[in-house]
Design a protein around this nucleic acid. Structure first.
Length: 935
RNA sequence: GCCCGGAUGGUGGAACUGGUAGACACGCAGGACUUAAAAUCCUGUUCCCGUUGAGGGAGUGCGGGUUCGAUUCCCGCUCCGGGUACCA
């Protein structure tokens, strides 16, 4: 019979479901292996060909591990809380729960079309109350703990309260934002609200005032991403920063452990570096500058305390608390104006823009504690309120940005580091010796730093300190479609944990914030009022549910706890995690943090959640553009075929994206719109209803093809279902892997798929000739065994390295070689089937059963290991190079020594001709590679 | 701006620890089969000069460097992608 992918795939898909082939047990003697995908957000657009890239890779690996005898956990679920569903609800009135579950059904249908070996009985959905019950549960645990710096772990808040009651907080070693000390007596004297506020300074989940991007016009909070040049991306309305009391997670308590943990995980160095930079550990000093006429001091952190003699001014973030207090009457107007300006710029813009130097003088002065001189205090938006203390001591001679600021505003610059001995050293490099710096003069920079810190400690004007760029995670969203906080406040404002979980989202019909700017949940008035208490109306961010979902897969239906100790002790951690690099710092950092917290509580046995991480690259698409004359002719738009542009020299063209469905030969360079396509285009874009097309001689309008994002806005989304229905799942899977290295971004282009399609037919035809089954039990020849074992060796290596594209190339080579040798021998082919089973699960299943084997190859097959004996070479051919240029080749026995090879090479007539009597300086023999003669 | 990547034929890509650059495919060209087309199969295909099946030169984004030898290591750029803390 001929290869009919559709029939075969339907048959085996049904077999898998009926026999629960991929159902995973928590109880087995086999060693475990956990292969996890980053679960998708089920968006309304459905899956496009880019989504399955990582899923196919992980599925191949999961199947490979199963064939190696592991009990493999390979689940899939949905990250179902998120902004798009909420925005869709605002636009259309469809409840997010409804659109989300519809999207999930659609995703599931698409995923089911791709031959994955997911155990769907373990699926999770973060927006399902039976799941977010446990997200809330874990949140309450975080809320109920503080970070003890002596034991270096999360500790119940009750322990802290007991200490406060006994001896106050003076000796408490904790990561906290508490600034004052109190005695046991004082503690007892505080009101419940005051006690609650103090505890907030210690809790790992706590409330504090933070700044959000507020758009009055849209009545909502925006992500930095949604703010462009100070206005909202949607609508272009002004955006300001607005202080709001919000929940935060004290991830900074775990900064050091998050850093240390990177040592023990198998992530790419690039990703580890990104995480390290995100945490941004820096050693330096905390310093306080006196401000005459103020009771407050300005706290700064500097990595360069050695340069303090060069600190000639100070800069506060425009939002800094002290600004209002210290600004002089004369400067009030300027400061207020500048604050308004800074307020309108997003943090992103402020960081990106180093060319525009802006700032305002407060009129106040601070005292440099080392020089004793008064230095002016400015505000400027290059200092960020959310980083460090929101204030800096500016050393224009030691920092690029300070220097530009000083020059621009004509402030004093005092040289403190002499870098004249270090040519090419940049301002800020830690080289040179100190000058104009009192007791530090003459010291090299590095020593001066140590000495300056000593002095700071002695003078009690600060202390040596480690600072992190990492900030506590903002955990509040003024949104509807997220987990409600299981927190309520009594009449005094004291926070209380909800005891009855899950606390479900109330039903709303309007998902916008209220007119007063309160989060949407405020609209559910009955829900908010609870037995004399008021509920929290913020919801949790998207990363809440995704921070622990991999643990729920281990025990997905448990309704007594998030997951049982038994399950987590068996599965331990994720062995392989596959997902996009865009999550390098967000999700990966937060889930590592949650995991470490749960480790402290003894909930999980491992310190890190993910043992190995592989990042798949982005799939790009081909965008088709029509050339349109910028100037209309007779009031009509004119579209010109790309091969007719020369006739319009000197005229300007606009590029208009075309829906790829209208194209003929989509993706090919000469793709074009035929008459039918042009009619479709006009119907699709009524604004070009009366357009004129300038066609070429063949009556075509050739388009310009460009590589870019796969996106709705370029009308180039290719649905995997379409590809599958034309070529089959096996072919689609193999082609996605064949496109290039998993980790690189690369363009999707359907046209190359025919190569893989042909290969699958060739593979099928190793077993069939004109539809007849031709497999024999003949013994394989040494050449055939060599082909097979070379393939086994390479495939094993490549799968282990996730080099699936080269792996598929080897399948093609092996198949071509066997075809040429007319080899249809069971001994060879049966092994090849198992090798290929993870890649092409259906065709291999069919052939495996046709060979007379019982059951599924994916359960009963065993991944082969190669035998070295078949790969031994008897001779090796070496290129002989003279001064690096290849001039001849020699063939010698595989066991030849270096000396023999050298002698053989020199004996070749051709070589002697090139040497031409010149003295030989040396001969380099690289075993198994080449011989190079240097003359 | 800052942090992390990437760049190899007409196209996607291959190349082990620095050792014959272009595996495997797509596309293209020529041929076979066919009344024809499609499909399939065979041959060729980095570029330039040259050609009898010779031979020669250049070449891995750009400019330098180290080395007998660099796609690979180092320095300086250009362009593209990802992240930049409320997109997921």
């Amino acid at each position: 019979m001929d290869y009919e992918s559709g029939e075969i795939e339907a048959k085996w898909k049904q077999y898998w479901v009926e026999n629960e082939v991929y159902k995973t047990s928590n109880d087995t003697s086999k060693p475990k292996y956990y292969v996890l995908d980053m679960f998708p957000y089920p968006s309304g657009a459905g899956l496009h060909v880019g989504h399955p890239l990582g899923y196919i890779a992980s599925d191949i690996f999961a199947r490979y591990k199963r064939l190696q005898g592991y009990n493999v956990l390979h689940p899939m679920g949905y990250d179902a809380f998120g902004l798009p569903a909420e925005q869709y609800a605002i636009q259309t009135g469809v409840h997010p729960a409804v659109s989300t579950s519809e999207n999930i059904r659609f995703y599931r249908k698409q995923l089911d079309n791709l031959g994955f070996s997911f155990d769907w009985s373990r699926s999770v959905n973060t927006s399902d109350p039976s799941y977010y019950k446990w997200t809330q549960h874990i949140f309450l645990k975080i809320f109920g703990h503080y970070y003890n710096n002596e034991t270096n772990k999360a500790t119940p808040i009750e322990t802290l309260v007991a200490t406060f009651e006994q001896e106050g907080n003076a000796n408490v070693q904790a990561t906290s934002s508490q600034e004052t000390t109190f005695s046991a007596e004082e503690w007892s004297g505080y009101s419940p609200k005051e006690q609650d506020d103090i505890l907030m300074n210690y809790r790992l989940a706590y409330r504090k005032v933070g700044f959000v991007n507020w758009c009055e016009e849209l009545g909502t909070v925006l992500a930095n991403d949604e703010v462009k040049d100070g206005v909202s991306e949607r609508g272009g309305y002004p955006v300001v920063k607005k202080p709001m009391r919000q929940w935060a997670l004290r991830i900074t308590a775990y900064a050091e452990r998050l850093l240390d943990g990177l040592e023990q995980v198998d992530f790419s160095e690039a990703l580890k570096t990104q995480q390290r930079n995100w945490i941004g550990r820096s050693e330096g000093a905390q310093l306080f500058f006196d401000v005459p006429n103020s009771t407050h001091k300005i706290e700064v952190f500097t990595t360069r305390p050695d340069t303090i003699f060069g600190a000639t001014f100070m800069v506060l973030a425009p939002e800094h608390d002290l600004v209002a207090e210290i600004t002089t009457e004369a400067q009030k107007e300027a400061i207020t104006a500048y604050q308004a300006y800074a307020n309108s710029r997003s943090e992103r813009d402020r960081m990106a823009d180093v060319k525009t130097i802006t700032g305002a003088f407060t009129g106040a002065y601070a005292v440099n504690p080392f020089t004793g001189k008064e230095v002016p205090v400015w505000i400027a938006d290059y200092v960020l309120i959310s980083y460090g203390t929101g204030a800096i001591m500016a050393v224009p001679s030691g920092d690029e940005r300070d220097a530009r600021f000083a020059e621009h505003f004509d402030l004093d610059i005092v040289q403190v580091v002499d870098q004249s001995a270090h040519e090419g050293a940049a301002i800020g490099d830690k080289v040179g010796v100190m000058v104009n710096s009192g007791f530090l003069d003459g010291l090299p920079v590095v020593e001066a730093i140590t000495k300056a810190i000593e002095e700071i400690n002695t003078k009690k004007i600060g202390e040596g300190k480690i600072n992190y760029r990492l900030r506590d995670a903002n955990f509040s969203r003024q949104r509807y479609w997220g987990e409600p906080f299981p927190i309520k406040y009594d009449a005094d404002g004291v926070s209380h944990a909800e005891t009855n979980l899950p606390l479900e989202l109330p039903t709303l019909d309007n998902f916008k914030p209220t007119k007063e700017g309160k989060a949407p949940l405020a609209r559910a008035e009955d829900w908010v009022k609870e037995g004399g208490m008021t509920r929290e109306i913020d919801t949790m961010p998207g990363f809440a549910g995704s921070s622990w979902y991999f643990l729920r897969y281990m025990d997905p239906t448990n309704d007594a706890e998030p997951f049982s100790a038994e399950a987590v002790n068996y599965w331990q951690e994720v062995d392989l995690y596959v997902g996009g690099a865009e999550h390098a710092v967000g999700h990966l950092m937060y889930s590592r943090f949650w995991h470490k917290f749960m480790f402290d509580l003894g909930m999980v046995p491992t310190r890190e959640p993910y043992k190995k991480l592989v990042n798949q690259g982005m799939l790009q698409g081909v965008i088709e553009f029509l050339y349109m004359l910028k100037e209309k002719q007779d009031g009509k738009s004119v579209f010109v075929s790309a091969d007719k542009l020369s006739e319009y020299e000197g005229q300007e063209f606009a590029q208009i994206p075309v829906h790829i469905d209208f194209m003929t030969d989509y993706g090919k360079p000469e793709s074009y719109l035929n008459e039918d396509g042009r009619a479709q285009f006009k119907a699709w874009r009524p604004d070009y209803n009366n357009a004129v097309f300038v066609t070429n001689a063949a009556g075509q309008v050739i388009t310009k093809s460009e590589v870019g994002k796969i996106s709705k806005r370029y009308f180039n989304v290719v649905n995997p279902d379409d590809v599958v229905s034309q070529y089959g799942t096996d072919c689609f899977r193999m082609y996605e892997m064949f496109l290039g290295p998993l980790e690189d971004s690369k363009p999707w282009d359907t046209k190359g798929i025919t190569g893989v399609s042909k290969f699958l037919r060739k593979f099928w035809n190793l077993f069939h000739n004109e539809g007849e089954w031709i497999v024999t039990d003949e013994k394989a020849t040494p050449e055939e065994l060599k082909t097979l074992h070379t393939a086994i060796k390479k495939v094993n290596q490549d799968v282990a390295n996730f080099s699936f594209n080269t792996c598929i190339a080897h399948f093609m080579v092996a198949t071509n070689e066997l075809k040429k040798a007319n080899c249809s021998k069971r001994e060879i082919l049966e092994v090849l089937i198992v090798l290929m089973a993870p890649f092409a699960p259906f065709i291999t299943e069919e052939l495996w059963s046709k060979l007379g084997n019982e059951g599924s190859v994916h359960v009963n097959g065993t991944y082969p290991a190669h035998e070295e004996a078949y790969l031994v070479q008897s001779t090796i051919t070496y290129p002989v190079c003279i001064k690096g240029k290849k001039r001849a080749t020699i063939t010698v026995g595989a066991d030849a020594t270096k000396e023999t090879i050298e002698k053989e090479a020199l004996a070749v007539e051709e070589v002697q001709k090139w040497i031409d009597g010149k003295p030989i300086r040396k001969v380099i023999v690289v075993p198994k590679r080449m011989v190079n003669i240097v003359i």
